[in-house]
Design a protein around this nucleic acid. Structure first.
Lengths: 175, 175
DNA sequence: CCTCATCGTTTGCATGATGCAAAATAGGTC
DNA sequence: GACCTATTTTGCATCATGCAAACGATGAGG
């Protein structure tokens, strides 16, 4: 819609950028999928997402974890059961409020998240390293402008950089 | 790994770009998630992925669809059953080879894919439209260089532009 | 023609993810 | 102590998933 409603000049402009964004998007998804692949024989994708949530938000109770994940508490409940059985998550009782549980990653669970995260960072860094320095600077500026236009907080070094991690791409398989 | 093994100068450079890429990545996932939301009360996410496959690859048989989706034929089988029940996909018999089926989108199925695709394009176009023209050009160049460094084919106008469409973001919900 | 290996589809079985609704449990109020 | 609320847990139903086996159609040799 947005592009169709304009004279040809501005249209082609926005359209070209959109196409470039979509292509880059495809690459990013492919990178993430590869990073994830390593962990997929230990946990399912939803389980990994739960690990990410616990990794970024530390000790939380069940409803909070469910909210952060955007799923029903009952779903989170059974997922946690399985993760505990796999020794990736621990469940304790909040001494201040005995009706709440306290969920936390075990060292094993922490390590899985770190491994995938590191792998993804490395893959992106490797791609970036193949660009010439001038392109790198330009990319930072361009992406920063894009993220700002899209209203995405620039995500400063907030810990171990966990972001859009844990997706599935429908078309990546067809590539 | 890749960054840790270098002196500080080059490291910070690559690191800054990596961070920018990850931020942009998060935005792109958020955009896709929003585009998908509209369709999620009609089909599940795996079902939508199947629709995308059928939309891009036209009439295919079951094993092909399963391969494109990266799932077991039995999984694809039952998914197709449900999509047929919802009148989003049709199943016929290949007259040339009666042991093969021919799967195709119904008009309804086609429309769902088109709606989500259009919504996503529009959202990205809207973001791009908020950037100043100079930034837009720079973004195209930068992303093109990035995609090339990552070995992603620049995806020319190959039809209705279907790409990384249909993911799930573990951290998007926590934003 | 009949038989057999093969390919594509389908079904059986088991596990995980998911949501809604209801039960059980713990905390706080009057 | 009765009552309301928040949290966890369980019951039930549906979808997604893979592996293995059964079924059905093709095509090649005999």
């Amino acid at each position: 819609m947005a592009e169709r409603a304009r004279p040809a000049g501005a249209t082609d402009d926005v359209d070209a950028v959109t196409r470039a964004v979509l292509t880059a998007s495809r690459l990013l998804v492919a990178v993430s999928a590869r990073s994830l692949a390593a962990a997929e024989d230990r946990v399912t994708l939803p389980q990994f997402r739960m690990l990410v949530v616990l990794s970024t938000h530390g000790a939380v109770n069940l409803v909070t974890a469910a909210d952060l994940l955007g799923v029903n508490p009952s779903t989170a409940m059974r997922m946690i059961d399985r993760l505990i059985a796999a020794d990736l998550v621990s469940r304790g009782v909040n001494p201040a409020n005995r009706r709440e549980t306290v969920l936390q990653l075990t060292p094993d669970g922490q390590r899985i998240v770190e491994d995938v995260t590191a792998r993804r960072r490395d893959e992106i860094a490797a791609i970036v390293a193949r660009m010439i320095p001038g392109q790198r600077e330009a990319l930072v500026d361009a992406l920063t402008a894009f993220a700002e236009a899209g209203g995405e907080p620039a995500a400063p070094g907030r810990g171990p950089d966990l972001y859009p991690l844990g997706w599935v791409d429908p078309t990546a398989s067809s590539a």
